[in-house]
C-alpha cells in the first residue's frame, strides 16, 4: 500500500504535469481537488484514464471519480480493491 501510494503520487505529478510539485509535497490524506492540490474537472478526466491505463479499472461515469479521487488514501484503497492489472 505504501508503495502504491508513492507510485500514484509520482504518476499524478507526471500525468498532470505538476511542474513545481514533488512526491514529498503530497500527503496521503491531502485533498487532491479544491483547496488541496488544486486539481479540477479536466484533471479528474485525466485520472480516470490513468486508472484505466495503469490499473485496468474502467469508470463509465465521471461522477464516480469524486469519491475515489478525494485523496491519495482513497485512490490507493480503490485501486487495490479493483485493479485488474
Amino acid at each position: 500500500m505504501v508503495e502504491l501510494k508513492e507510485e500514484l503520487k509520482g504518476k499524478i505529478i507526471e500525468v498532470l504535469n505538476l511542474e513545481d510539485v514533488t512526491v514529498g509535497d503530497i500527503q496521503d490524506g491531502d485533498a487532491l481537488f479544491g483547496d488541496g492540490l488544486g486539481l479540477d474537472s479536466i484533471d479528474a478526466l485525466e485520472l480516470i484514464v490513468l486508472l484505466d491505463k495503469e490499473y485496468g479499472i474502467k469508470l463509465s461515469d465521471p461522477k464516480q471519480g469524486k469519491a475515489i479521487f478525494k485523496s491519495i488514501e482513497t485512490m490507493a484503497a480503490y485501486i487495490s480493491e479493483n485493479r485488474t492489472k
Partner: peptide, 10 residues
C-alpha cells in the same frame, strides 16, 4: 484510439 486524455484535445 486507447487511453486518450482530454487535455490536448481541449
Amino acid at each position: 484510439e486507447q487511453f486518450l486524455t482530454p487535455t490536448s484535445f481541449i
